[in-house]
Design a protein around this nucleic acid. Structure first.
Length: 403
DNA sequence: AAAATATTCAACCGCTCTACA
DNA sequence: ATGTAGAGCGGTTGAATATTT
């Protein structure tokens, strides 16, 4: 039938990937791009199915991956996006550059769910557990259906794009905001958070601080390579139209032209109805021609993709995230170096590579341009030796020693 | 120190969607 | 309109690792 033919082929390796396999796949894709995944293993000399190669590349070898633990901001964003999108991990991942859907899914299942339950929140419904006990299942089978944004006002649903809590609550016609159970829940939590936690107050001095630049700060070696984000593997999220209509997708292309691909979000909190009839609460920015977007564009470089968002992701969160951390300052590591870049471990010489790969590494900068090829420009420049090496290095190093 | 238990996360499986002939 | 193949997604598994007893 329509099953993957690769699945039926025999003698294909399964399970964990060896360093040699990684090297082969990396070498092949670096040189030729992946093209048709089903042909990759054959061309790369791998005893794997194309699907496995694709997964390995996307989840592990891709150069634009950000490794290491999730920041508090990222966790917050995941929770808030999950409240809107449900288990649409790929769409959630699309909002977290450098993170994979698999990674986010694992984090959700292993960590965030637990945290939410401890806070008395049903991770499936995002409602208080007291509301879901008895009725909806407790085993997680009641998958959260993506919430259709309440008509006319996304701000009550997507805190990331919402003005600070107070203004959200302080709508003249707040009753109309509450158009669903979830809205009601979010609304209630917003109010509760505002009342009980000063941490949810907006910080004026950071009213418009680009979140992504917080993560990939100018000091970060990743920053100058923002073009690497949203490569061919990133699809335009097919969110609800009302959701996406206020997410401007532009690329800060050198020419200032606009790309139709999923690239950036320029959002700025506003008061009242925007001139373009976008919803009140935030304003779309045009990368490259807005006088307000300079905060995030400084280091993106030509062809860079600018990612901007309202800092109120944290500040106006509907939950009291500050409760989850003992020291928020410690959690938000602005400008922290990307941790545990496994791929760079190959490239920075901490792991012995074949001369071929090493040579290729040197040639990476601007070397390859072809369809389905990730952008190489600047690659080597951000693949700096990570400050911290994770267990992956140990595993790979051990494997190499064994070899 | 060893065993038991819990947690993490890489990878697989099965399905849907889409493009194309 | 139908069939096929490839890509991608979300759920699940199980090995590796960490923690507890």
């Amino acid at each position: 039938m329509g099953r993957h033919s690769c699945c039926y082929k025999q003698k294909l390796r399964k399970g964990l990937w060896s360093p040699e396999e990684d090297e082969k796949l990396l070498k092949h894709i670096t040189k030729y791009g992946h093209g048709c995944w089903s042909s990759v293993p054959k061309l790369a000399g791998l005893q794997r199915c194309g699907k496995s190669c694709r997964l390995r590349w996307i989840n592990y070898l891709r150069p634009d991956l950000k490794r290491g633990s999730f920041s508090q901001q990222e966790e917050d964003l995941i929770i808030e996006l999950h409240a809107v999108l449900g288990n649409r991990w790929s769409q959630i991942a699309a909002q977290l550059p450098g993170r994979t859907d698999n990674e986010i899914k694992n984090l959700w299942n292993s960590c965030i769910k637990k945290k939410l339950r401890q806070r008395g929140i049903d991770p499936n419904t995002h409602k208080p557990l007291s509301e879901t006990e008895g009725g909806e299942d407790k085993a997680g089978s009641s998958e959260l259906k993506p919430l259709a944004p309440p008509s006319g006002n996304l701000n009550s649903v997507v805190p990331e794009f919402a003005p600070p809590v107070m203004s959200m609550v302080d709508r003249s016609n707040s009753e109309n905001l509450v158009t669903s159970t979830k809205d009601f829940f979010l609304y209630r939590f917003a109010a509760a958070s505002h009342e009980s936690s000063s941490s949810c107050q907006p910080t004026n001095s950071m009213d418009y601080l680009p979140l992504r630049n917080s993560t990939y700060s100018p000091s970060s070696s990743m920053d100058q390579n923002l073009p690497l984000w949203f490569n061919q593997n990133s699809r335009l999220p097919d969110m609800n139209p009302e959701f996406t209509c206020n997410m401007m997708m532009t690329a800060a292309l050198p020419s200032g032209s606009r790309s139709t691909a999923s690239t950036s979000m320029g959002l700025k909190p506003t008061v009242g109805m925007a001139a373009d009839n976008s919803l009140p609460g935030f304003q779309c920015l045009e990368a490259g021609n807005s006088s307000n977007n300079s905060a995030s564009s400084g280091n993106s470089g030509g062809g860079g993709i600018e990612l901007q968002s309202n800092n109120s992701i944290y500040e106006s969160s509907i939950f009291q995230w500050s409760d989850l951390v003992s020291n928020r300052q410690a959690e938000i590591q602005l400008g922290a170096e990307p941790e545990d870049l496994k791929w760079s471990e190959y490239l920075n010489g901490t792991i012995p590579l074949s001369a071929d790969i090493q040579n290729q590494t040197q040639l990476l900068n601007g070397a390859v341009k072809e369809e389905n090829q990730f952008p190489i420009d600047g690659l080597s420049s951000w693949l700096q030796p990570p400050e911290v090496f994770g267990k992956d290095l140990q595993r790979i190093s051990t494997a190499f020693k064994q070899i």
